[in-house]
Amino acid sequence: MKKMFAMALGAVMMAGAVSAANAGTLDDVKKKGFIQCGVSQGLPGFSMPDDKGNWKGIDVDFCRALAAAVFADPNKVKFTPLSAKQRFNALRSGEVDVLSRNTTWTMQRDTEQGLNFAGVLYYDGQGFMVRKSMGVTSALQLNGAAVCTNTGTTTELNVADFFRSHKMKYEVVAFEKADEVVKAYDEGRCDVYTTDRSGLAAMRLKMKNPDEHVVLPEIISKEPLGPVVRHGDDQWFDIVKWTLFAMVNAEELGVTSKNVDEMKKSTNPAIKRLLGVEGDFGKMIGLSNDWAYNVIKLVGNYGEIYDRNVGPKTPLGLARGLNALWNKGGIMYAPPIR
């Protein structure tokens, strides 16, 4: 009899023990040996598998940078493709450790949705794409148009705001997958395709005839895109945040993946702190002191991952614009490491 009682009690206690997990993301990540990173279902330049199945893109490179910071190995990362609709739930439920999926930083997401934005990886704005044959030159001429967009995005809300504030009518056709949006637009279900301008440039590459389309000049919103973590784990939040800052600081200090070893001998104290020659900055976030060195050596600084994935020499051909460093005409600015 006593045995049975003890067994029952034991089962209950075991159940209780499980619920205590899930707080220290860094420990979990170290234990399983890789970072689970949420990315898009295929957005060229941001996150998309190449023909060999390797994930490529600026969002992907950020995940690799995180893996380099934690494990000194950029390949210790696994990717989970997520739709716009699934992404926050996947992050909140712990299915992914970090979400690096061209996600706009908004107040409601940062608070009510239980998420923390670790900074801005790409400053973007929402634009419209139409067929050249329509003869439209401004978004203000779009009264009565059918607009294809993604559900569960800020895009969906911005487009509603834009048409309403200009007293124009529109019909929204909202799909769950980005590919379906493009397909529906390409097949003529909609007159207009709207998303972030970087997304327009990227998804255009997936259309039957990319030259038939034109992006209208209006930018109707601010879309700061960045990596996201869930509430409740400050250490992990710090790691993600400072990995991003380290990459931006590295560009500002002229440290690249090619010269990082020479730079270790630099006399500039800022570089010394960045590369872990001086100070205990890695330890402050629970990593080794050469964390930023690994990030830059194995993945690159911010400018490098920008140019490699979305810059002017890539098929996307996006100029740095707002994403240039603050001292080069842009607004990309990182707090100092000290």
Partner: peptide, 19 residues
């Protein structure tokens, strides 16, 4: 799947926008 705004589609948008 094909953007017909039924209960699940609209509810999905609400989930995503409100959390």
């Amino acid at each position: 799947a094909i953007a017909y705004p039924d209960l699940v589609a609209v509810g999905g948008i609400v989930i995503n926008q409100s959390g």
